[in-house]
Design a protein around this nucleic acid. Structure first.
Length: 482
DNA sequence: CACTAGTGCAA
DNA sequence: TATTGCACTAGTG
């Protein structure tokens, strides 16, 4: 289904049945049997038919391949398809089969500890609220906060008033209950989604967690991970760190984590050839500090952590195609102030400004954007009559080449690393990819060799106008490998 | 059991 | 009114 995906990344379903329906005009193909003198005969069967043969998926795929191969060629996607995505299948299969080990007893201990903490917070919440209710129900929580306690409502949702983290943080300034709710939410989220759920998914034969890496899901060329999603394991906060400590290496092995440092901003520097960005990255400078100096007009020595934090948010916002309103919401400052930041940024980075304008113009003209590896994303939003949707299209046009190129780059490095590990007969195994990070399991005595190999291949996956930088570390658990 | 809404975890 | 995902619970049908 890779071909269908590359030809139309905007479509959500790239499973066999949907693609058959779209390209072949049938629900599903069945392979007729081997009795037909070696000649393949196809017949159409409904999806829900009880008459299913083991060869039908392969037969359908073969037929689709003949149909889609010329389209792949015609759209200039052949290299991407045959040299990147197809070879990557085996790499991902190896990673899925390898799985990752978790410390189940440790997770269980966390669970008990969290259970107690949650129960104690619960008691306080019921006492403050004056009644018991389901804290996990936004509907019931609204009644308590906005009706019983008469706290000021903030944002609206489709069905009522929002009780999300931003709202609760504001309410916490005026009442003691919201703080307890936040604590409760955090703990029950981490307990329910990770600490309790993951141990149940450990495979009985391998004793490890096996994810699925989905190659035909995202609009930008990233992978996704599901069942379980191992690309959103917590990392922040006390409990986030603890959960990562429960991702461990096999006895005699270490977990090796290597991640690209600011790969998206480096890609943006490359694509835009912006003087300031290129200068910072060529000298391995602190990009957020540099932006902070520009925004606040102070020398490096006078920068405060708050100034750098704001600049970091601005830099991220740039990659997403920021608006003054969005930035003000993110920073919790007036829109006027955030507008000044954006204007100042673009005055100091005319290269980025011009690149973004060019990109949007080209996207509107061609109807799609491309990454540096020729991956395409149609952006029909740019032709929409609704201004909000058109502006969304502009943000997609800005973000996709950057996020997509970063995805391309790490895929190249995965292929090169996988091949070298095989050629050089190393026992190191690639386990996970988390967008800009790779996680390996490495025999203790292979650590130095593997670290050198991985760093080398990631930093040299492609040649850009600025160097690619990789941070790398190894430890018995995932938390310590960072 | 399938689906939506709200929420929140990651890059 | 910031990009890309996945999964949890509550609630509904």
């Amino acid at each position: 289904m890779l071909a269908s995906y590359l030809l139309n990344p905007n479509k959500s379903n790239h499973n066999l049945e949907d693609v058959c329906l779209e390209y072949l005009g049938v629900k599903k193909l069945a392979y007729n049997d081997v009795t037909d003198k070696g000649k393949l005969n196809f017949r159409e069967v409904p999806v829900d038919s009880a008459t299913c043969y083991s060869g039908e998926d392969a037969a359908a795929a073969l037929k689709l391949r003949k149909l889609l191969a010329p389209a792949i060629e015609k759209q200039g996607l052949a290299k991407l398809f045959y040299d990147m995505e197809m070879p990557l299948i085996e790499v991902l299969a190896d990673m899925e089969m390898a799985g990752v080990k978790i410390d189940v007893p440790l997770m269980n201990a966390f669970s008990a500890e969290m259970e107690k903490e949650i129960a104690s917070i619960e008691k306080r919440i019921y006492f403050i609220a004056g009644e018991e209710f389901n804290i996990n129900s936004p509907k019931q929580l609204q009644e308590i906060l906005f009706e019983k306690l008469s706290l000021r409502t903030r944002r609206k949702t489709k069905t009522g008033f929002s009780t999300d983290i931003d709202v609760l943080e504001q309410l916490a300034l005026e009442h003691e209950l919201p703080r307890e709710i936040i604590e409760h939410r955090t703990l029950s989220k981490l307990k329910g989604t990770y600490v309790d759920a993951l141990p149940r998914l450990v495979n009985l034969k391998t004793g490890r967690l096996h994810t699925s890496f989905n190659q035909t899901v995202t609009a930008t060329g990233r992978l996704s991970s599901s069942d379980p999603n191992l690309q959103n394991i917590p990392i922040r906060g006390e409990w986030g760190i603890k959960i990562r400590e429960a991702f461990i290496a096999e006895k005699g092995f270490l977990l090796l984590s290597s991640d690209y440092s600011q790969i998206e901003l480096r890609v943006l520097a490359h694509l835009s050839i912006d003087e300031g960005f290129i200068e910072v990255f060529r000298h391995d400078g602190d990009i957020h500090a540099r932006t902070a100096m520009e925004l606040f007009g102070v020398p490096a020595g006078e920068l405060t952590p708050e100034m750098r934090r704001r600049a970091k948010t601005v830099n991220f916002g740039i990659v997403y195609g920021i608006s003054p309103f969005g930035l003000s919401k993110q920073l919790g400052i007036p829109p006027d102030e955030s507008r000044d930041y954006i204007e100042t940024f673009f005055v100091k980075h005319k290269g980025v400004r011009d690149y973004m304008n060019r990109t949007i113009e080209q996207a509107a003209e061609a109807g799609f954007v491309s990454t540096m590896f020729g991956r395409k994303r149609p952006i029909p939003e740019l032709k929409n009559t609704n201004k909000n949707i058109r502006q969304l299209g502009e943000r997609l046009a800005i973000n996709t080449p950057v996020q997509g190129a970063a995805a391309d780059i790490i895929k190249v490095s995965m292929l090169n690393i996988w091949r070298r590990l095989k050629e050089e007969r190393l026992k190191t195994r690639m386990l996970l990819q988390v967008h800009d990070e790779l996680l390996f399991e490495v025999p203790e005595d292979e650590k130095d060799l593997a670290m050198a190999l991985v760093k080398e291949e990631m930093e040299n996956a492609v040649k850009l106008e600025v160097p690619l930088k990789v941070d790398i570390g190894a430890c018995v658990n995932w938390a310590g490998a960072h």
